[in-house]
Computed example of a mutant assay.
Amino acid sequence: MKTRSRRLLILVLVSLLALAGYVAAGPWLAVNGIRHLVASGQTGELWRFVDYAQLRDNLRPQIREQIARGVLPSANRIGSGKRMADVIDLLAKPTLDAMASPQGVATLLTGSSLGRRAGLPQGAPNDPLADAETRYESASLFTASVPNADGDTVVFEFRRSGLGWKLTGLRLPAH
Rank of each mutant, 00 (worst) to 15 (best):
S40T: 15
Q62F: 05
N32I: 00
S74A: 14
T110V: 03
D152F: 10
N126W: 00
R159C: 02
S74G: 09
R64F: 00
L170N: 09
V71M: 04
K2N: 10
R116N: 01
L167F: 06
G79N: 10
P73L: 13
G123R: 11
V105Y: 01
W47D: 15
A149E: 13
I10S: 07
H36W: 09
L114W: 07
G169P: 06
N76D: 14
D97C: 07
L114V: 01
V38W: 04
S5A: 14
P73Q: 11
K166P: 01
G111K: 04
L96Y: 08
A106R: 06
A139C: 00
L17H: 05
L172H: 12
L37S: 03
L37Y: 08
I78K: 11
D57Y: 05
G70V: 02
R77P: 00
P125C: 03
A124R: 09
A149M: 10
D51W: 04
A85E: 13
V14I: 14
A18L: 15
N76K: 13
K93Y: 01
V87D: 00
L46H: 04
P61Q: 08
L114I: 03
V12G: 02
A20I: 02
S145P: 00
L72Q: 14
M84T: 12
T168W: 04
L8I: 09
S113F: 04
D86K: 14
A30M: 09
A100S: 11
Q103I: 01
D97R: 13
L72F: 10
R135G: 07
G111L: 01
V14Y: 02
R83A: 09
V50S: 06
G123Y: 04
K82E: 14
I34A: 08
L167H: 06
L13T: 12
A106H: 08
S112Y: 04
A149K: 15
P73W: 13
L163R: 12
A174R: 15
S112N: 13
P94G: 11
G44W: 09
L16K: 06
L141S: 10
V31D: 12
R160D: 10
L9W: 08
D131K: 12
T153C: 03
F142V: 07
R7P: 00
G151H: 09
R159G: 02
H36L: 11
Y136E: 10
E133T: 12
A39Y: 03
E133R: 15
V12Y: 02
R77M: 14
